[in-house]
């Protein structure tokens, strides 16, 4: 089990009493590159928040392998673009895991900030105020910050939104580079073609996992159809989920052969 990065144990995440992720079990292998796909409201962002710890689980838990540091690029950043900061100030926040509150930023740190900007194609943007950046440039700036965080586990929530084709290519290249460095990466993506071309593994969510495993297998038409039937709206009077109601469903198969069945918990975890 030493090559497991993340373990979900009966994880339920949500808002109020309504689950957005319902009884998720499974493992994320170290060094894996996984796309998280699903309809709006299927729990993708919620899962990301749960992993990074911004949202506390309603039940179950997310277990991070010891020593794993996460970097998180949220979908809806709470970034205040009117704050008087330069690109270099924003990217330097990524030094936090290394330098913390009081550690001095050394010359090497400043160099690594420049290199990170260079890597996302924003060399020379250091002194630009952040309120003068375009949407795509800002997204790349945030990628540079993730780069600087030097994390083992990288969580990107819809990083390609409102980003032009060339930039998407650049960012994908960066993600593949991270993959080559044996970092564990989870990316929420909408574009299925992009997923098929670039992501070895996929988790298909519809509050519960519909399928989880090798991308081509996961994105089979019948799985996508089942994911599409997912009912987005909460039901105010939905029955309470009984703790024992799902226990017998845990005899997971490997590599999700049960995808086609109307099984409560669809796919099993990756055989780790």
């Amino acid at each position: 089990m030493t090559n497991t990065c993340l373990t979900f144990r009966d994880l339920t995440l949500g808002y109020g009493s309504h689950p957005a992720i319902h009884h998720l079990d499974g493992k994320i292998r170290k060094g894996s590159l996984t796309a998280v796909v699903g309809a709006n409201g299927s729990g993708k962002s919620t899962l990301m928040k749960g992993i990074v710890g911004v949202l506390k689980p309603m039940a179950g838990e997310v277990i991070r392998a010891p020593g794993v540091r996460a970097a998180y690029l949220p979908q809806q950043s709470e970034l205040d673009r009117s704050f008087p900061a330069r690109v270099v100030d924003l990217v330097s926040l990524g030094l936090w895991p290394r330098r913390g509150l009081l550690g001095r930023h050394t010359r090497e740190d400043r160099d690594s900030v420049s290199q990170a900007l260079m890597a996302v194609g924003l060399g020379g943007f250091e002194k630009r105020p952040i309120d003068t950046l375009s949407g795509g440039q800002l997204q790349r700036t945030l990628f540079a910050r993730v780069l600087l965080q030097d994390a083992d586990l990288i969580l990107l929530d819809e990083p390609f939104n409102a980003v032009d084709a060339k930039t998407v290519g650049d960012l994908i290249a960066l993600i593949k580079h991270w993959h080559g460095e044996e970092r564990t990466i989870l990316v929420v993506v909408h574009d299925l073609d992009l997923v098929r071309q670039n992501f070895p593994e996929t988790l298909l969510l519809a509050r519960q996992p519909i399928a989880w495993g090798e991308t081509r297998e996961t994105l089979k038409p019948e799985n996508l159809l089942r994911a599409r039937r997912f009912h987005e709206a909460w039901e105010e009077n939905a029955p309470w989920c009984e703790p024992d109601g799902h226990a017998h469903d845990h005899d997971h198969d490997h590599h999700g052969h049960a995808h086609g069945h109307d099984h409560h918990h669809g796919a099993g975890p990756r055989a780790a």
Partner: peptide
């Protein structure tokens, strides 16, 4: 003492929450 955290909390509070409990 808290300068860096204060700037981070103003600039990008969600980021600060993801790296620190401050």
């Amino acid at each position: 003492i808290f300068w860096r955290a204060l700037v981070a909390e103003c600039l990008d509070p969600l980021f600060l929450r993801s790296v620190s409990r401050l």
